[in-house]
Protein backbone atom coordinates (compact mmCIF):
# COMPACT_ATOMS: atom_id res chain seq x y z
CA UNK A 1 0.00 0.00 0.00
CA UNK A 2 2.74 2.43 1.03
CA UNK A 3 6.16 2.37 -0.48
CA UNK A 4 9.23 4.50 0.18
CA UNK A 5 11.86 4.02 -2.51
CA UNK A 6 15.41 5.15 -1.69
CA UNK A 7 14.19 8.25 0.09
CA UNK A 8 16.60 10.87 1.40
CA UNK A 9 15.53 13.95 3.29
CA UNK A 10 16.57 16.34 6.03
CA UNK A 11 16.44 19.87 7.31
CA UNK A 12 18.07 22.60 5.26
CA UNK A 13 21.50 21.43 4.19
CA UNK A 14 21.61 18.59 6.70
CA UNK A 15 20.53 15.24 5.31
CA UNK A 16 19.17 12.95 7.97
CA UNK A 17 17.61 10.09 6.04
CA UNK A 18 19.79 8.26 3.56
CA UNK A 19 18.31 5.98 0.97
CA UNK A 20 15.46 4.69 3.09
CA UNK A 21 13.24 2.07 1.48
CA UNK A 22 10.33 0.44 3.20
CA UNK A 23 6.86 -0.77 2.49
CA UNK A 24 3.63 -1.28 4.35
CA UNK A 25 1.04 -3.72 3.02
CA UNK A 26 -2.67 -3.34 3.50
CA UNK A 27 -3.85 -4.60 6.87
CA UNK A 28 -0.33 -4.86 8.32
CA UNK A 29 1.10 -3.43 11.48
CA UNK A 30 4.64 -2.31 10.72
CA UNK A 31 7.05 -0.75 13.17
CA UNK A 32 10.22 1.24 12.78
CA UNK A 33 12.53 0.89 15.76
CA UNK A 34 15.78 2.64 16.46
CA UNK A 35 17.60 4.71 19.05
CA UNK A 36 17.32 8.40 19.73
CA UNK A 37 18.22 10.52 16.75
CA UNK A 38 18.29 7.51 14.41
CA UNK A 39 15.80 9.17 12.04
CA UNK A 40 12.49 7.61 13.05
CA UNK A 41 10.58 10.83 13.42
CA UNK A 42 12.20 12.28 10.31
CA UNK A 43 10.96 9.26 8.35
CA UNK A 44 7.43 9.93 9.49
CA UNK A 45 7.62 13.66 8.87
CA UNK A 46 8.86 12.95 5.35
CA UNK A 47 6.07 10.46 4.74
CA UNK A 48 3.39 12.85 5.88
CA UNK A 49 4.70 15.75 3.81
CA UNK A 50 5.82 17.95 6.71
CA UNK A 51 9.31 17.95 5.26
CA UNK A 52 10.05 17.53 1.60
CA UNK A 53 11.83 14.56 0.09
CA UNK A 54 15.17 15.46 -1.45
CA UNK A 55 15.66 12.19 -3.35
CA UNK A 56 13.71 9.03 -4.02
CA UNK A 57 9.97 8.60 -4.18
CA UNK A 58 6.98 7.73 -2.03
CA UNK A 59 3.88 6.04 -3.38
CA UNK A 60 0.58 5.32 -1.71
CA UNK A 61 -1.85 2.91 -3.36
CA UNK A 62 0.33 3.18 -6.48
CA UNK A 63 -0.03 6.95 -6.67
CA UNK A 64 2.96 9.19 -6.30
CA UNK A 65 2.79 11.34 -3.16
CA UNK A 66 6.47 12.24 -2.95
CA UNK A 67 6.11 16.01 -3.05
CA UNK A 68 2.56 16.51 -1.86
CA UNK A 69 2.12 19.05 0.96
CA UNK A 70 0.98 17.67 4.29
CA UNK A 71 -2.68 18.56 3.97
CA UNK A 72 -3.00 16.74 0.67
CA UNK A 73 -1.32 13.66 2.06
CA UNK A 74 -4.05 13.62 4.71
CA UNK A 75 -6.68 13.84 2.00
CA UNK A 76 -5.23 10.74 0.35
CA UNK A 77 -5.91 8.77 3.52
CA UNK A 78 -2.70 8.89 5.55
CA UNK A 79 -2.93 10.36 9.03
CA UNK A 80 -0.02 10.90 11.39
CA UNK A 81 -0.57 11.10 15.12
CA UNK A 82 2.38 13.28 16.01
CA UNK A 83 4.94 12.87 18.75
CA UNK A 84 4.13 14.52 22.08
CA UNK A 85 0.41 14.62 21.23
CA UNK A 86 0.25 18.17 19.86
CA UNK A 87 -3.37 18.85 20.68
CA UNK A 88 -4.88 22.26 20.10
CA UNK A 89 -4.49 23.33 23.73
CA UNK A 90 -7.14 26.03 23.89
CA UNK A 91 -9.83 24.06 22.18
CA UNK A 92 -12.17 21.64 23.91
CA UNK A 93 -11.70 17.93 23.52
CA UNK A 94 -14.72 17.80 21.24
CA UNK A 95 -13.37 20.58 19.05
CA UNK A 96 -10.06 18.74 18.81
CA UNK A 97 -11.88 15.63 17.69
CA UNK A 98 -13.92 17.64 15.19
CA UNK A 99 -10.72 18.99 13.70
CA UNK A 100 -9.66 15.40 13.13
CA UNK A 101 -12.55 15.01 10.72
CA UNK A 102 -11.53 18.05 8.67
CA UNK A 103 -10.72 16.01 5.59
CA UNK A 104 -13.72 15.99 3.20
CA UNK A 105 -13.95 12.21 3.06
CA UNK A 106 -14.28 12.11 6.86
CA UNK A 107 -16.81 14.91 7.22
CA UNK A 108 -19.65 12.96 5.69
CA UNK A 109 -19.17 10.05 8.06
CA UNK A 110 -18.68 12.26 11.09
CA UNK A 111 -21.61 11.20 13.32
CA UNK A 112 -21.13 7.50 12.84
CA UNK A 113 -17.38 7.68 13.21
CA UNK A 114 -17.63 9.78 16.36
CA UNK A 115 -19.69 7.08 17.99
CA UNK A 116 -17.25 4.35 16.99
CA UNK A 117 -14.26 6.28 18.20
CA UNK A 118 -15.76 7.36 21.49
CA UNK A 119 -16.76 3.77 22.19
CA UNK A 120 -13.07 3.00 22.14
CA UNK A 121 -12.22 5.83 24.56
CA UNK A 122 -14.75 6.00 27.40
CA UNK A 123 -12.51 8.42 29.33
CA UNK A 124 -12.42 10.84 26.44
CA UNK A 125 -16.19 10.74 26.16
CA UNK A 126 -16.49 11.96 29.75
CA UNK A 127 -14.30 14.97 29.04
CA UNK A 128 -15.59 16.20 25.72
CA UNK A 129 -16.19 19.74 26.91
CA UNK A 130 -12.98 20.31 28.83
CA UNK A 131 -10.10 22.36 27.48
CA UNK A 132 -7.60 19.97 25.94
CA UNK A 133 -4.71 21.45 27.95
CA UNK A 134 -6.44 20.61 31.24
CA UNK A 135 -6.16 16.87 30.58
CA UNK A 136 -3.47 14.58 31.93
CA UNK A 137 -0.76 13.30 29.59
CA UNK A 138 -2.40 9.90 29.16
CA UNK A 139 -5.79 11.42 28.45
CA UNK A 140 -4.23 13.79 25.95
CA UNK A 141 -2.64 10.86 24.15
CA UNK A 142 -6.04 9.18 23.93
CA UNK A 143 -7.55 12.38 22.50
CA UNK A 144 -4.71 12.59 20.00
CA UNK A 145 -5.39 9.04 18.86
CA UNK A 146 -9.13 9.66 18.71
CA UNK A 147 -8.49 12.82 16.71
CA UNK A 148 -6.32 10.90 14.26
CA UNK A 149 -8.93 8.17 13.88
CA UNK A 150 -11.64 10.70 13.06
CA UNK A 151 -9.98 11.26 9.69
CA UNK A 152 -11.00 7.69 8.76
CA UNK A 153 -7.49 7.05 7.48
CA UNK A 154 -6.53 3.97 5.54
CA UNK A 155 -3.06 4.21 7.02
CA UNK A 156 -2.66 5.45 10.57
CA UNK A 157 0.83 6.41 11.70
CA UNK A 158 1.85 6.66 15.34
CA UNK A 159 4.91 8.61 16.39
CA UNK A 160 6.10 7.53 19.85
CA UNK A 161 2.64 7.17 21.39
CA UNK A 162 4.06 6.08 24.74
CA UNK A 163 6.49 8.98 25.12
CA UNK A 164 6.49 10.40 28.63
CA UNK A 165 3.56 8.32 29.83
CA UNK A 166 3.30 6.23 32.97
CA UNK A 167 3.73 2.44 32.42
CA UNK A 168 0.07 1.69 33.11
CA UNK A 169 -1.00 4.23 30.49
CA UNK A 170 1.52 2.82 28.04
CA UNK A 171 -0.12 -0.56 28.11
CA UNK A 172 -3.53 1.08 27.61
CA UNK A 173 -2.15 2.87 24.57
CA UNK A 174 -0.90 -0.40 23.15
CA UNK A 175 -4.27 -2.04 23.76
CA UNK A 176 -5.84 0.70 21.69
CA UNK A 177 -3.27 0.29 18.93
CA UNK A 178 -4.04 -3.41 18.87
CA UNK A 179 -7.78 -2.77 18.61
CA UNK A 180 -7.30 -0.29 15.80
CA UNK A 181 -5.21 -2.80 13.90
CA UNK A 182 -7.77 -5.53 14.47
CA UNK A 183 -10.51 -3.32 13.08
CA UNK A 184 -8.69 -3.41 9.76
CA UNK A 185 -6.79 -0.10 9.71
CA UNK A 186 -3.24 -0.39 8.47
CA UNK A 187 -0.79 0.86 11.10
CA UNK A 188 2.75 2.17 10.98
CA UNK A 189 4.23 2.78 14.41
CA UNK A 190 7.47 4.26 15.66
CA UNK A 191 8.38 3.52 19.24
CA UNK A 192 11.13 3.45 21.80
CA UNK A 193 9.30 0.81 23.73
CA UNK A 194 10.67 -1.91 21.50
CA UNK A 195 9.41 -5.06 23.13
CA UNK A 196 5.81 -3.99 23.43
CA UNK A 197 5.78 -2.68 19.89
CA UNK A 198 7.25 -5.85 18.47
CA UNK A 199 4.48 -7.82 20.16
CA UNK A 200 1.85 -5.76 18.37
CA UNK A 201 3.62 -5.56 15.04
CA UNK A 202 3.75 -7.97 12.12
CA UNK A 203 6.96 -6.68 10.63
CA UNK A 204 9.71 -4.33 11.74
CA UNK A 205 12.45 -2.16 10.30
CA UNK A 206 15.49 -1.21 12.33
CA UNK A 207 16.89 2.23 11.59
CA UNK A 208 20.31 3.51 12.59
CA UNK A 209 21.93 6.80 11.61
CA UNK A 210 19.25 7.50 9.04
CA UNK A 211 19.64 4.16 7.30
CA UNK A 212 17.55 1.02 7.44
CA UNK A 213 19.97 -1.62 8.73
CA UNK A 214 17.67 -4.58 9.19
CA UNK A 215 14.13 -5.72 8.62
CA UNK A 216 12.11 -8.83 9.22
CA UNK A 217 9.20 -10.42 11.02
CA UNK A 218 8.56 -8.85 14.39
CA UNK A 219 8.75 -12.20 16.14
CA UNK A 220 12.21 -12.88 14.80
CA UNK A 221 13.55 -9.51 15.81
CA UNK A 222 12.22 -9.79 19.33
CA UNK A 223 15.24 -11.55 20.75
CA UNK A 224 17.73 -10.07 18.32
CA UNK A 225 21.00 -9.01 19.86
CA UNK A 226 21.40 -6.17 17.43
CA UNK A 227 18.44 -4.36 18.90
CA UNK A 228 19.57 -4.87 22.45
CA UNK A 229 22.95 -3.54 21.50
CA UNK A 230 21.58 -0.44 19.82
CA UNK A 231 19.62 0.44 22.90
CA UNK A 232 21.68 -0.77 25.81
CA UNK A 233 25.14 -1.36 24.45
CA UNK A 234 25.18 -4.97 25.70
Amino acid sequence: MLRMNNVSSGYGATTILHDVSLEVKKGEVVTIVGGNGAGKTTTLRTLSGLIDTSAGSITFKDEDITHLPAHQVVNRGITLIPEARQLFPEMTVLENIQMGAYRPAAKSRYEQRLEEVLALFPRVKERLHQQAESLSGGEQQMVAIARGMMACPELLIFDEPSLGLAPIVVSQVFDVVKKIAESGTTVLIVEQNVQQTLKVADRAYVIENGRIVMDGQAQELMGNDHIRKAYLGI
Binding site: L50, P69, H71, N75, L80, P82, Q86, M99
Partner: peptide, 24 residues
Protein backbone atom coordinates in the same frame (compact mmCIF):
# COMPACT_ATOMS: atom_id res chain seq x y z
CA UNK B 1 -17.78 27.50 11.97
CA UNK B 2 -15.53 24.90 10.43
CA UNK B 3 -13.37 27.61 8.85
CA UNK B 4 -13.17 29.49 12.15
CA UNK B 5 -12.06 26.38 13.99
CA UNK B 6 -9.48 25.69 11.33
CA UNK B 7 -8.16 29.23 11.82
CA UNK B 8 -7.87 28.72 15.57
CA UNK B 9 -6.29 25.32 15.12
CA UNK B 10 -3.66 26.85 12.84
CA UNK B 11 -2.91 29.52 15.42
CA UNK B 12 -2.56 27.01 18.25
CA UNK B 13 -0.46 24.41 16.48
CA UNK B 14 0.47 24.94 12.88
CA UNK B 15 2.06 21.53 12.56
CA UNK B 16 -0.87 19.59 13.94
CA UNK B 17 -3.26 21.66 11.82
CA UNK B 18 -1.48 20.49 8.69
CA UNK B 19 -1.78 16.92 9.90
CA UNK B 20 -5.56 17.40 10.12
CA UNK B 21 -5.58 18.21 6.42
CA UNK B 22 -5.81 21.96 6.87
CA UNK B 23 -4.20 23.98 4.10
CA UNK B 24 -2.33 26.32 6.38
Amino acid sequence: TQMGRAIRATAQNRNAAQLMGINV
